[in-house]
Design a protein around this nucleic acid. Structure first.
Lengths: 337, 337
DNA sequence: CCTTTCCGTTGAAACCTTTCAAACGAGGGA
DNA sequence: TCCCTCGTTTGAAAGGTTTCAACGGAAAGG
């Protein structure tokens, strides 16, 4: 493969100066049609491709955004990514996705690489929103927005969804349906979302005047289908006089596992146990018994995050904002007889 | 925000030449410990970050791979991505994911951008493996490997899975279980995978000596859960004397939709209808009735693709290879009483 | 016929890093 | 004391693009 051709080669071939080639690329209206045609022909002949590194070096900034996400296999994040992509596209930028897989070291590697690349901005759902790596990015001047997590200090823009409200909506829905013994399934509590949704659940429970000890917390080690199955076994192990009649799962994967475990055991949803999930992933509606779930405006989350990061990149007196979206309950058969 | 500092700034602050700073970065063993310490301190003081664009410009190549995928929400592709990521990581590279969302224009934009960035290599699951954009990339000298699709000409490396075999495995499994009326659910046939899996299904059917007209093709417009539900309605509409006793769905999403439709209608799986899916996505095992499915070595696919693209990038007399992996049937309750 | 204006084009400088031949200085041997 | 060697440091060049002040020429106006 011959060395890729440069503007200089194009200029030589078109018998013009290299400044003119650059003008064809960047300000075509300034170039006479005849010259432009000549240059464009030369580009085609040589298969010229702009060298983005050089362009970036000169311009000082790139034409990309990046989203560093926790888990590409979780539909929640890919939906957020899609929203971000739409916003990026309309700003004429490309969006690269980076998968940290929940590993802080990988996250740090990606962030460092992105900063070195001088991307226009970074969206990140961090493993730990307080990790110092985020501050390092800030110090290097790359705009960064935290997605689906929050930090108390106002050092960064962030977009998140009100998880306390989400928890409240879920439990209010169950209370309205007449349930008086409910299980909260989720964990570990180190995850902010788990804490917040539980807090919301408790608020709703208390507001309904129901006794504390009738809201049972079933702790899980992760938010996965397998953990949902195991939680299902534990629920079924509870003596029937004290067994909850409904469960609120902190995400849909848990809920799907729970549902599977129950139907394996021959129990019926919602008759024997009503279920509310969280996230409203595509597979929630596609489950054997379509799941009631708390929906978050995922695309919107991504779109807004991208807008904020662009604002931070372009507006010299940008103010950091903490955007909080409102979740919404989608009722389906898993709670409606 | 002050302008980001450069090697020159670091050099000035450490009272050394800029060549020395570069040596600290790239060949630390050549620099005396005292000088190195001084330079490193200056870097910390200034918050110096390498400018990757300049580095790349000089070096002529970047330290990234990219995978342009069709649909980030399909777990199949994210698993492939994960495999590719592992390979990239052990080669010291970063992997960026680009989501084409099945849109040729977006795919073309991403490819163009990646070529301009002079990435080391591109993996792509193209909307259309024969599209000219792929040849353009080749012409510009960027290594490119086609993932999960094939092209007859040997212009590119590719990695794929033997879909004919997969189709055969699925139907052989059903035949062994004694089914003599089977539905093939999938479409449109413009998708190579659909054609191949159907071909495999027919092979197995013929090999078992079963009559052609007992393998019913139920065509769908897409490979989605919704289409699976609609296919379910059509299956149930068939008079019971002629109704198939088993269905082979061209992917798991269809199978999940079908399963949901049947259980809504009060039919039982596998008693009333056995189901085989394809892809073995996480949610296949998590379904109310765990799905029998044809598993593809997804991670392996990504890993191998990344290795091939690196070989193409590094080995001057690289030979294009068409790698074909073997699928495997995973039997679960949806076909086992 | 000369001057002004304007459009199109030019060439050099700048962006930041890496590389490499050359310079440097200290220490050891003659 | 001088020379050589070896390990360290230096400075300039290169890589491809963009920008911008300056230039040339032609048309328009006097």
């Amino acid at each position: 493969m011959a060395r890729a051709s440069s503007v200089k080669d194009v200029a030589a071939r078109a018998h013009v100066s290299l400044g003119t080639v650059s003008n064809v690329l960047n300000r075509p209206e300034r170039v006479s049609p005849a010259t432009r045609a000549k240059v464009e022909q030369a580009m085609r002949d040589l298969g010229f491709v702009r060298n983005e590194s050089a362009r970036q070096l000169r311009a000082g900034r790139s034409r990309t955004l990046a989203y560093v996400l926790l888990d590409a296999r979780n539909p929640f994040f890919t939906d957020v990514a899609q929203g971000a992509e739409l916003a990026a596209e309309s700003a004429g930028l490309s969006l690269f996705l980076c998968h940290s897989g929940n590993r802080p070291s990988r996250e740090a590697d990606y962030l460092a690489h992105l900063v070195e690349q001088r991307v226009q901005g970074i969206l990140v759902t961090p493993v730990d929103p307080h990790a110092a790596v985020l501050d390092d990015v800030r110090r290097n001047g790359t705009p960064l927005v935290i997605v689906d997590r929050t930090r108390e200090d106002a050092e960064f823009c962030s977009v998140a969804v009100d998880d306390v409200l989400g928890g409240r909506l879920a439990v209010e829905h169950l209370v309205e349906a007449g349930h008086t013994r409910v299980a909260f399934i989720g964990g570990p509590e180190t995850i902010g979302q788990v804490r917040d949704r539980l807090a919301g659940a408790r608020q709703a429970w208390a507001a309904a005047g129901l006794p504390d000890d009738q809201l049972t917390v079933i702790a899980t080690d992760a938010l996965t289908v397998a953990e949902g199955r195991s939680a299902g076994e534990r629920v079924m192990g509870i003596g029937s006089s004290r067994r909850p009649t409904a469960a609120f799962c902190v995400n849909d994967l848990l809920a799907l596992g729970l549902l599977q475990q129950l139907s394996t055991a021959g129990l019926s949803v919602p008759r024997d146990l009503a279920i509310v999930g969280y996230d409203d992933i595509e597979y929630a509606a596609a489950a054997a018994v379509p799941l009631t779930s708390v929906r978050q405006p995922r695309q919107e989350l991504g779109r807004r995050a991208a807008e904020l990061v662009l604002d931070e990149a372009e507006d010299p007196d940008h103010q950091h904002q903490q955007v909080v979206f409102t979740p919404e309950l989608v009722a389906r058969r898993s709670t409606l007889g």
